[in-house]
């Protein structure tokens, strides 16, 4: 049941990205281009997503387990550190270069565009490099 829910949630997530225009890199860059002709659509995507998810997350924060009996696994860390900010800045630079972030990359991976395959391959390399550096750090 949990596995079925996970799949269903993933499908809805992907349909949402496609509907929202998040899966169109040119549109995302139009949102990031404040100084040009600015497309504010993605502000509404974020606002609607947070508006819908706010109450469920408030409920989830107070629970030990999910409705299907899984442990509630919400991040507990609260400190702001250099890794969080530095990593997010690097991510933002990459996002600004191509207009693609991880969710949309997955959602358009199978639409037959070599650009997405290349982007995702490089992204996976980046993640593997991170994992290797973390292992060396111990």
């Amino acid at each position: 049941m949990r596995k079925l829910m996970a799949f269903l949630a993933g499908v809805i997530f992907g349909i949402g990205l496609l509907t929202a225009g998040m899966a169109n890199p040119a549109k995302v860059l139009g949102f990031l281009d404040l100084a040009g002709a600015w497309d504010p659509s993605l502000v509404l995507v974020m606002a609607a997503a947070i508006g819908v998810a706010f109450l469920p997350f408030s409920w989830a924060r107070a629970q030990r387990s999910s409705l299907l009996g899984a442990p509630m696994q919400l991040p507990g860390k609260r400190e702001l550190d250099r890794r969080l900010i530095g990593g997010s800045l690097l991510f933002g630079i990459g996002w600004g270069i191509a207009g693609i972030c991880p969710g949309p990359a997955v959602a358009i991976l199978l639409t037959g565009r070599w650009q997405v395959l290349l982007f995702v391959a490089a992204m996976l390399v980046g993640m593997v490099v991170f994992a290797a550096l973390e292992r060396r750090r111990g």
Binding site: A9, A20, G21, A48
Partner: peptide, 18 residues
């Protein structure tokens, strides 16, 4: 509409799967 679907998916994943 797309944002609401994204929010719905995130909600389902946390409420059902934690």
């Amino acid at each position: 509409a797309g944002g609401a679907l994204i929010g719905l998916a995130a909600s389902l994943f946390v409420v059902m799967n934690g």
